[in-house]
């Protein structure tokens, strides 16, 4: 990870994994990064996993079939990775003899096996992501950026580890060979970058710090950290201090003064969590502001993307 005075540099990494505790806004951060790069003319695809369809809700593309890239906005595409389809696609690519693939896919025994085999869902999901990242058309990459909206921290890290686990389990054979190729890409800092997301609260911050420690220990390439939903300064310390001394004549004014002081306390706490995060990880996060209540819309994401773009060189 590099931060020059001009801002963040995520390099040319094509594969971006967005990781963090449940509820920190991984989907929002994934979409924000996607919109930022798309606005710079790059071809971007955001991959949702484990049956999530948040993007199609935000961009109102409800009829998007699973495992099919769907255009969300200019230069920006989305895909919701479906395990069953990815398994079939994977088998087709490996076996290459269509009738054999059909025989396998139609067999009930195979379905029972595939549903129960631990790690299979993660492996085909990661395989599909890898395929997006390495696919070429006319000698050029199909996608400039593949952004993965990961499951919550523990399961997200498990997804990243899948290829390595399979490489250890299978001594040889096509599964092993492919897992090894995936592992090489996922672990390579010029190909892949992990973006760890927190929000300025006690538990999300401590989970992000733990995740970073674990990722570093195992040499996973961390590209950036993000402090999402940061609370921006609206009242100075002096103002908050002075407001505490006022007695309002009516109840509503009093409540409003109380609200202003509470907002200031939230700012101060958020700054404390940010400082703790920065100090514990020695990383300076990208800051994305709290956008308040209500559904996420493309327009709100575009505003966030502009904020993000001001901090990111590439």
């Amino acid at each position: 990870m590099t931060i020059s005075p001009a801002g963040y540099d995520l390099g040319d990494r094509r594969l971006i994994f967005v990781l963090g505790k449940g509820g920190v806004g991984k989907s929002v951060v994934s979409s924000t990064l996607g919109m930022m790069w798309a606005a710079r003319g790059q071809r971007v695809i955001i991959a949702e996993v484990a049956n999530q369809h948040r993007l199609s809700e935000v961009f109102a593309t409800h009829d998007a079939p699973p495992n099919v890239a769907t255009e969300l906005a200019p230069h920006l595409w989305g895909i919701s990775i479906d395990v069953d389809r990815s398994t079939q696609e994977y088998l087709a690519s490996q076996i290459k003899i269509r009738p054999l693939v059909d025989l396998l896919v139609r067999s009930r025994a195979f379905h029972t096996f595939a549903a129960a085999a631990p790690g299979l869902a993660e492996l085909v999901t990661l395989g599909k992501i890898w395929e997006l990242a390495v696919s070429l058309e006319g000698g050029h990459p199909v996608w400039d950026k593949v952004i993965v909206d990961c499951p919550a921290t523990g399961h997200g890290i498990a997804l990243l580890r899948t290829a390595g686990n399979v490489t250890q389990l299978a001594a040889h054979g096509p599964v092993r060979d492919q897992a090894h190729r995936i592992e090489e890409v996922v672990m390579h800092p010029s190909a892949t970058g992990i973006v760890v997301v927190a929000r300025p609260e006690e538990l999300p911050v401590s989970e992000a710090i733990d995740a970073i420690t674990e990722l570093r220990r195992d040499n996973f390439p961390i590209a950036a950290t993000v402090m999402n939903a940061h609370i921006e300064m609206r009242f100075s310390h002096e103002e908050a201090h002075a407001l505490a001394d006022i007695v309002a004549a009516d109840r509503v004014t009093d409540a409003a003064l109380h609200g202003a002081r509470a907002a200031h306390r939230r700012q101060v706490r958020a700054d404390g969590h940010l400082a703790h995060f920065t100090q514990a990880t020695h990383l300076t996060p990208l800051i994305l502001p709290d956008i308040g209540p209500g559904p996420i819309t493309p327009a709100r994401l575009a505003a966030l993307a502009a904020r993000c773009a001001a901090q990111v060189i590439r």
């Binding site: 025989l103 389990l169 001594a171 054979g173 096509p174 092993r176």
Partner: peptide, 18 residues
């Protein structure tokens, strides 16, 4: 079985044996 032997082409014999 046929299905098994197709699967084995993908996983390699050792993984299924394990």
């Amino acid at each position: 079985s046929t299905v098994f032997s197709i699967l084995e082409r993908v996983t390699g014999a050792q993984l299924l044996r394990d």
